[in-house]
Design a protein around this nucleic acid. Structure first.
Lengths: 337, 337
DNA sequence: CCGTTCCGTTGAAACCTTTCAAACCGAGGA
DNA sequence: TCCTCGGTTTGAAAGGTTTCAACGGAACGG
């Protein structure tokens, strides 16, 4: 593999000028068919590959979008990513995924790197939506959209789903089914999502005139399958006379863990405990007992976020907007006697 | 947001030359503390962010690794990615994930883009390990390592797991448990993995002197949960006198689908059908009936791949190697009476 | 046959950083 | 006093592309 060849080499081989080669690359319609063919042949002969760094340096903009996500293992985020990918693809851009793994420091490293690379735009589901690191990105002129989180100010575009409404839908569904003692499983409360879903749950509970202390909050350390199992043990540890007859989990992973824990313990769902999850990930419908869940328009979330970030990048009179989608309850066997 | 400032602006503000600013950036130890402080202050005042394109253009190499993966929803790949990330991080590089979604065209687009970007190296789990697109990457001088697949020639480094052995382990386990009629569930056979696991299964079957026609192959279109359920229906459709008593699934997603299908149909695992999966993803241990599975050293796979690609990038006498890891059977309830 | 017009092509500047040989400067030694 | 030496700093070149004003020539109308 000889040293990579440049436009100059191509130009020399094709007996044309540098500028013409560049035109073939960027405005082929302006080049006569004959010259174009000559140049393209030369490119092939040399195995020419355009140097994107040089291109970007001169042209000023890159052909890349990035999505910095919290947890690549949670199908919710990969679905969002898929939506963003579709939007990026149709704009002729590539989407790179960066996995912050819930660590603020990694998130910061990625953001800094992306800003240095002058990507067209960044989508991010941040560890902390109010972190100053996000303002730094903005200050450096890289468009940034917050995904599935909201911020206290409106300095950014964001796309999110109405989690309070989602919480309300879930609990209304349980109340309608006649449950009068319900557990809310989720945590930590530092996550805005968890707070909102719980708030929605409370609204529905109060609206149904049920006594507040019958909505039991079972805290978790994270929104994972393992935490769901451990929450399950705690719920089952409650004396059966006072044990909730239904549980609303802050996400589907928790719900799946809970479900597993129950079936290991030989209890039936929904007989012994009805379960509502949140996110409606693929595995929810596919669980041993298909899960009732609150569906979020995941792909749509990603698609819209990508569109917003592109608008911010291209449209000089771009206005920040906070897009809020509406969730929807999908009832399945886990709440149906 | 005023136009981004450059080293030139920083130099002017700090009353030093261009070169000094660059030294602060790249070889701070050569700059006297006083000057350094001045320059750093100027950078802060201007909100200077190094332009990575220009840096890379001049310096010749990037600070990026990329992993082009098949299916972001399959936890197997995200675990591999995690391993690669760790290796990249400790080499001071960033890892970008690119989701080919099993489409050769998307994979090709990503590879081309990455080559144009002159990334340090590419890890890829390709749709087709023998595709010419991979050779193109190599020809253009970008190091590339094939992950979890193997190629017919040895023009590349690759890291994989011995799938034939894995298949053998799975079936030996079932044979030891006394099963004499077993289904192999998986497909399409264009996937090397599937072929190898089946080959291993056959080896073990023959070694146990069992009649060949009692190892039933149930084909699938893909390695997904949905396909697992549909395969389940087909298996259950077999007259009970001739129905296998155990199934070996080519991956855990299939196994999970199968498990769900059975429990929906009111059948018991392993009572009515014992199940062995493959990959030992997190959800396998966490399934309603914990799955026996063949574990692959996923993180290790990613880590080693990243190390190899870095060696290829930095070491002039790099030799391609085909690393093959050994899988391991993890027995759980799905095969234990 | 000349003047326009239009299309295709050219050449040089610009983008921002890194690199490296050379210049600088103050200190210590002769 | 002059030299040498070490550590700092400088200035210019280089890296590969895009952009754009300017150019050449052919076709066309007069």
């Amino acid at each position: 593999m000889a040293k990579a060849s440049s436009v100059k080499d191509v130009a020399a081989l094709a007996h044309v000028s540098l500028g013409t080669v560049s035109n073939v690359l960027n405005r082929p319609e302006r080049v006569s068919p004959a010259t174009r063919a000559k140049v393209e042949q030369a490119m092939r002969d040399l195995g020419f590959v355009r140097n994107e760094s040089a291109r970007q340096l001169r042209a000023g903009r890159s052909r890349t979008l990035a999505y910095v996500l919290l947890d690549a293992r949670n199908p919710f985020f990969t679905d969002v990513a898929q939506g963003a990918e579709l939007a990026a693809e149709s704009a002729g851009l590539s989407l790179f995924l960066c996995h912050s793994d819930n660590r603020a420091s990694r998130e910061g490293d990625y953001l800094a790197h992306l800003v240095e690379q002058r990507v067209q735009g960044i989508l991010v589901t941040p560890v902390d939506p109010n972190a100053a690191a996000l303002d730094d990105v903005r200050r450096n002129g890289t468009p940034l959209v917050i995904v599935d989180r909201t911020r206290d100010d409106d300095h950014f575009c964001s796309v999110a789903v109405d989690d309070v409404l989602g919480g309300r839908l879930a609990v209304e569904h349980l109340v309608e089914a006649g449950h009068t003692r319900v557990a809310f499983i989720g945590g930590p409360e530092t996550i805005g999502q968890v707070r909102d879903r719980l708030a929605g749950a409370r609204e529905a509970w109060v609206a149904a005139d049920l006594p507040e202390d019958q909505l039991v909050v079972v805290g978790t350390e994270a929104l994972t399958v393992a935490e769901g199992r451990s929450a399950g043990e705690r719920v089952m540890g409650i004396a059966s006379s006072r044990r909730p007859t239904a549980a609303f989990c802050a996400n589907d992973l928790l719900a799946l863990g809970l479900l597993q824990q129950l079936s290991t313990a030989g209890l039936s769902v929904p007989g012994d405990l009805a379960i509502v999850g949140y996110d409606d990930i693929e595995y929810a419908a596919a669980a041993a007992v298909p899960l009732t869940s609150v569906r979020q328009p995941r792909q749509e979330l990603g698609r819209r976020a990508a569109e917003l970030v592109l608008d911010e990048a291209e449209n000089p009179d771009h206005l920040h907007q906070q897009v809020v989608f509406t969730p929807e309850l999908v009832a399945r066997r886990s709440t149906r006697g």
